[in-house]
Amino acid sequence: MQQAGATAIPAPPPRARDRWWLPRCYSDLIGRRVFAFLLALHGVGAFALITVGVLLRNLRVAQPVMRPLIAREIHRAGVQLLPMFFFAAAALGFLVIGQTVAWLSRVEAANNLLGNIMVIVVVRELGPLLTALLVLARVGTANVVELGTARALGEVEALEALGIDPVHYLVVPRVVGMAVGVFALTVYLILGTLVSGYLWVFLQDVPLLPGDYFRELAGALSYLDFALLALKTCAFGFIIAIVTCFHGLGQPLQLNEISRATVRAVGQSTVACILLDALFISLYLTVT
């Protein structure tokens, strides 16, 4: 029962109340999403160009400060993640190669496809993409939190006051470290996967000699695979570093906004990596 003096809140009309979670108009929603996407693309693109400009212009600036910072980032985005990548390689070897080889060995004609399938699945696709996503989860998120906190606590202004370009000091080491880290980890992941894959095959008593297994793989690889692998993994590292640094540093942040910025950065980095992967697939198909 309503108390005397209290203002009655009018109940929403039944139809609107039942669909409160729906947007008022789908065209508005789509328009807002498109504009948000374009604005994000514009911001990240501008930030990437600024970073590349600073990287090239300041190659020889403050080397005693920058070298240890870059080494630290390579250690963080590469060496420190090695145990996790050895585990991922063992798991991937079992999931993909162990099962595929065991299955293909039952079909006489399919043995010829073994190398090609392995190269397409592990070397060209799963290896680089899985590495990028794992590095994003482990290091990219930390980037947003660290830089967002630095921004919110005024450390960026402190660097500017000291005449130190925050992009040079905070972003460039992360970009270089992550590009090198993703490339190196992808190579380790692929090698680990192929070796552990054969181990699973051996344990399943599949009649496949190591020489035949690796000959199949080597026969399916071309120089283009090596070149595109290097290019793609460095591009993944660059994109993850740029997107996460942009969300941490490229806009004014309060401490309570950092978690949302991290979620946005992870979403955008994932989409960007998948789109870039699609671009590389079309490039590869065009060239070959």
């Binding site: 403050a62 660290e146 630095a150």
Partner: peptide
């Protein structure tokens, strides 16, 4: 003060000297 959280107090003071 706005010191950089990743560095010690002494490293913070040394930073402008090492950079410039």
């Amino acid at each position: 003060g706005q010191s950089l959280g990743q560095l010690t107090v002494a490293e913070n003071i040394a930073l402008p000297l090492r950079y410039h």
